[in-house]
Design a protein around this nucleic acid. Structure first.
Lengths: 205, 205
DNA sequence: TAGATTGTTAATCGATTAACAATC
DNA sequence: TAGATTGTTAATCGATTAACAATC
């Protein structure tokens, strides 16, 4: 597992910046200032400058940042300038939705297939991509050099599925279940618990 | 918008605790200690104790917390002990998936319907729930006393949809798009950007 | 009783924010 | 030049962690 060169909050904010900067690029703007980005997102300019600094970008005082350079700097920092072969494990509602989610495909995530234990789902063509049985996972993933497994099974099945993913040699699991997975040290798990977001909104209502 | 009585990181962790405590309850265990929860989640016991304290629960030294009391305390703190009538706005892949997501329905979120501009989607029966046109939103939401709108439209349509949601009188928007919504002060927006999670895993690989 | 666990008070750590010189 | 913006260094703020007395 790599040691990130920036704090997790900073990394989380970078995609929002990138989205705004790409819009500026589409609008033909050659430069953009941290102040502009901050206003758009309701953040402090100093925070945007500090965040952008982690990508190695150098701005021009009084002018701002070169839009094309900045897009490249962020994409490169996030490794979004190269494709990441990925699979979905668990082709239920959420798995199928993520399979067609444009926010991922726009940023290098290349979902090659889904895997499921339910024989009824097999052979389906979900968003133009195949659904295979769990037995086919190992050979497929080694052949396609899969880097990321997106885990969308019910929580009761999550640990067993994770064990399988580890066995296959995949080193990164994006865990959409609400349990903590037990995996070897060299495997990265990023937990994305939608009920955490629901908890926030429930308290704020 | 309510001022939460706990930090956002604390609130985010509570659902994971609740899940473990409910499992203990199902297993018939009368008490559970912060140490047990911490071990399960790979956290520090002191953090779990501090987090649980915000719910007002009182534990017993040497014993731990009464499981039933603790479940009630967390559910009550998160307002998960009452139903929250909700709607999905944008019945695309993600919207449909969230409509059937059990992690929400298990915790009081009661999704009553979805709304979409695409006439092809209307009348569909998605997970046993109806899909209506945007025009029907206002009367439906006022009648059903909708509290939360889950926004799953493409980002280009997000601000217009949010304006509509505000107009209807809904005070909480769960925003799954990657733009910042401009809404009146009394409307709460919780942004849930899946590309932020993808950024983390991309950097950690 | 001895030992484990709670809850409180204090210390540490890291992220955010402020101040300001440098620069175009 | 004057003024806006960057990048650096320092200060603040808040969350996490540590220490420890209280308790069953």
């Amino acid at each position: 597992m790599n040691q990130p060169k920036a704090s997790l909050p900073t990394i989380r904010r970078l995609p929002s910046y990138l989205h705004i900067i790409r819009q500026a690029h589409n609008a033909g703007e050659p430069v953009i200032s941290a102040t502009t980005i901050a206003n758009e997102l309701d953040l402090e300019p100093i925070q945007v400058r500090k965040d952008l600094a982690v990508t190695g970008i150098i701005g021009k005082p009084r002018v701002g940042y070169n839009v094309e350079e900045l897009i490249q700097a962020i994409e490169s920092f996030l490794h979004w300038d190269a494709p990441h072969p990925s699979i979905i494990v668990g082709a239920g509602n959420l798995g199928q939705a993520l399979m067609g989610y444009q926010g991922f495909s726009d940023n290098g995530m290349d979902i090659k297939a889904a895997f499921d234990i339910n024989p009824e789902k097999l052979g389906d063509n979900c968003h133009g991509k195949p659904v295979f049985s769990m037995e086919e996972m190992e050979s497929f993933c080694r052949r396609e050099k899969i880097e990321i497994a997106v885990l969308c099974v019910p929580w009761e099945a999550a640990q067993a599925a994770a064990d399988r993913i580890v066995q296959v040699g995949i080193k990164a699991i994006w865990n959409f279940t609400n349990i903590r997975l037990k995996v070897p040290e060299d495997v990265t798990v990023q937990k994305e618990d939608l009920t955490s977001g629901y908890a926030i909104i429930s308290v704020l209502i």
